Amino acid sequence: MAKVTVYITGSIAAYKGIEVVRGLQKQGHVVRVVMTAAACKLVAPATLAALTKQPVLTSLWTDQDPIPHIELADWTDLAVVVPASADIIAKLANGLADDAASTTLLATSAPKIVVPAMNSHMWAAAPTQRNLKQLQADGVTIIEPAQGMLAEGYAGKGRLPEPAAIVADVQAMLTANGPLQGRRILITAGGTREPIDPVRFIGNRSSGKMGMALARAALAAGATVTLVVGQVSVPLPQSPRLTVVPVESTADLLTAVQREFSAADALLMAAAVADFRPTQAADQKVKKAADRADWQLTLTETTDVLKTVADQKRPGQLVVGFAAETQNLLANAQKKLASKGADMIVANAVGGQNGAFGSNRDQVTILRAHQAVDQWPEMSKDGVATKLVTQLATMMKSGD
Rank of each mutant, 00 (worst) to 15 (best):
G17D: 01
G17Q: 07
G17P: 04
G17E: 00
G17F: 00
I18M: 06
I18W: 00
I18A: 09
I18N: 03
I18G: 07
I18L: 10
I18H: 03
E19Y: 11
E19D: 14
E19I: 02
V20G: 07
V21Y: 01
V21R: 00
R22Q: 12
R22H: 11
R22Y: 06
G23H: 12
G23Y: 12
G23F: 05
L24C: 08
L24Q: 08
L24F: 09
L24H: 09
L24K: 04
Q25L: 14
Q25R: 08
Q25E: 14
Q25Y: 06
Q25T: 07
K26L: 12
K26I: 13
Q27D: 10
Q27L: 15
G28W: 01
G28R: 03
H29G: 06
V30H: 13
V31A: 10
V31E: 05
V31Q: 07
R32N: 13
R32W: 15
R32S: 14
R32T: 15
V33S: 10
V33I: 12
V34D: 11
V34G: 15
M35S: 04
M35W: 04
M35I: 10
M35G: 02
M35L: 03
T36C: 07
T36R: 09
T36K: 06
A37R: 14
A37F: 09
A38W: 07
A38L: 13
A38N: 11
A38R: 04
A39N: 05
A39R: 11
C40D: 05
C40Q: 06
K41G: 11
L42T: 02
L42E: 01
L42P: 00
L42C: 02
V43L: 04
V43P: 02
V43G: 01
A44L: 05
A44G: 13
A44E: 10
A46P: 01
A46C: 02
T47A: 03
T47M: 01
T47Q: 04
T47I: 01
L48Q: 02
L48K: 03
A49T: 10
A49S: 15
A50V: 11
A50T: 12
A50H: 05
A50K: 00
A50L: 08
A50Y: 01
A50F: 02
